[in-house]
Design a protein around this nucleic acid. Structure first.
Ligand SMILES: [Mn+2]
Ligand SMILES: [Mn+2]
Ligand SMILES: [Zn+2]
Ligand SMILES: [Zn+2]
Lengths: 132, 132
DNA sequence: TTAAACAGTGAAAATGGTTGTCAATAACAA
DNA sequence: TTGTTATTGACAACCATTTTCACTGTTTAA
């Protein structure tokens, strides 16, 4: 099963790979694999919560390892609307984490939601893109 | 030009409409319009910042009026991963707004980004979906 | 006024990431 | 063995979005 292979690829990078990116990398050490299986495996990994699926607006899904024992630390994204460059940032202000928890609790109560996750992204222009 | 028609449709709902949803509604009062023009107009409205484009993972882009003079108030999203239901919430805790600004400033400085916007979504299960 | 350049538009075709189908093979059970 | 079930990859189908292009109405320049 390519489950391990896909997880290995994802654990080796900070990038946000597309299904085809992953396919190509797995293919190097596991040439028998098909793109279909990569999609299938990713789907399953996303469903069991080991992998996150994102859409940054470039027409293809992007994946990264979910946080956890083997996963990267939890982080948020800084997205450049000019060139698409994405920064993973984890240096949260202390208050940020505290407030996030507080906000989740408030929303849970008010709207009767069992909140399990959040997505936080800031959009703007990186230094390079600003200079043009 | 269908610009007005599209904006009218979007200003009449709290929902997050797809391009085709919008097409069908505009079509009622403006039967000559084509789907291509809807896409073109949406693209342009997104570029000039009058409309926001989202992806909630159902395979099609979703649109809503950006905040502003004629727009809705700024809000964040609560997304049910069970049924896809989306809540627009605007009752921010006071601190939330303050901290958001502070965080933006910190990030701007640290990563040299000119931040113009943010996307904040909480994921979970709504009451109905929790009961199954 | 006229004619050429231009901008806006919709129908239809093309694109391309993703999903579905299906036959082949592997793993397992009786 | 032998039948059953699970896994897999090649290929076809899908479908939201984009591209192409002919057609129209509008502006511009002589
Ligand atoms: Mn990331
Ligand atoms: Mn909304
Ligand atoms: Zn950039
Ligand atoms: Zn639900």
């Amino acid at each position: 099963m390519g489950r391990e292979a896909v997880l290995d690829v994802l654990s080796l990078t900070e990038d946000h790979l597309s299904a085809e990116d992953i396919y190509m990398r797995v293919h190097e050490t596991y040439p028998a694999i098909g793109l279909t299986s990569i999609y299938r495996t990713l789907d399953m990994l996303v469903n069991i919560g080991l992998v996150y699926k994102f859409d940054f607006g470039d027409g293809r899904a992007r994946f990264e390892l979910a946080e956890g024992p083997k996963g990267k630390d939890h982080h948020h994204h800084l997205v450049c609307t000019g060139c698409g460059h994405i920064v993973n940032y984890r240096d949260f202000i202390d208050e940020e984490v505290a407030l996030l928890k507080k906000t989740e609790e408030g929303l849970s109560k008010k709207y009767n939601f069992a909140i399990t996750n959040h997505l936080i992204q800031f959009y703007g222009l990186c230094e390079t893109c600003r200079k043009k």
